[in-house]
Design a protein around this nucleic acid. Sequence first.
DNA 1: CTATGTGTATTAGGTGATATAATACACTTA
DNA 2: TAAGTGTATTATATCACCTAATACACATAG
Lengths: 130, 130
Amino acid sequence: MNEVTVGGMRFELDLSQPLYEQVLDQVRSSIAKGEIALGEKIPSVREMAQALKINPNTVMRAYQELERDQLTETRRGQGTFITADAEKVKHIRYKLAEEAVEEFLAKLGSLGFTASEIAAILRSKGGEGQ
Amino acid sequence: MNEVTVGGMRFELDLSQPLYEQVLDQVRSSIAKGEIALGEKIPSVREMAQALKINPNTVMRAYQELERDQLTETRRGQGTFITADAEKVKHIRYKLAEEAVEEFLAKLGSLGFTASEIAAILRSKGGEGQ
DNA sequence: CTATGTGTATTAGGTGATATAATACACTTA
DNA sequence: TAAGTGTATTATATCACCTAATACACATAG
């Protein structure tokens, strides 16, 4: 319903999570999936803010975290660009994946599930392809 | 360092997460793992609050969520008791596991990982037994 | 009956994260 | 010079979370 497409990325913001985090996740996801070409420019802070109907400061916060992760490079006066270094993208992608795995295993571990039980659950629910 | 053991449960609270959520998680975890016997009484709101050095209202919030999930039964004037129904514990345990799986798969999916890739990562990191 | 220990409700206040608004500055490019 | 970038600052508002203090309803031991 409340979707917006900007810079080739699709956003659907809600209030269940900080806005800057949702923006960050969406852009990062687009980069990780290769939906945005390396070196490409992403929308300016103001343009993104206007499109999403949120404050420029909120977009800034997301953009700065992207740069901290070296997924983007910002050039004053020019804009914000996806890194041209494929290795950096690959690295962050795996790092995020590992963190997700750690968190997942910890959570199921705290519920008393063994590794084989976890594997069985995943096998029954792993209907994700794409 | 900052650990407290109360009612047979070990707590180590920090500020990275809401306190009521940490208390909830810890008690629920103890129940799911069977570290607390069914039907057993858990520490009173006041006792728990004093032991953890937090406000009774904060403990209350955790306890109320436990009761909403039917993991506990509260008897006014007597205390809060773990449910005697093993099925309910089993049910909640699997429900929480499924939610964790869903969230995990969604997160990795948004990073562009396929099911087989996810399986491979888990195989390499799944060194959790007990 | 009384005292004590339960769960529960209410009201008030403090703190920090999040988000907005408005404005200004530094830099790049047409 | 003008317009579009990133960036910084100050102020304000809101909300979740936590605390504090107090009071009430109920159960049980004495």
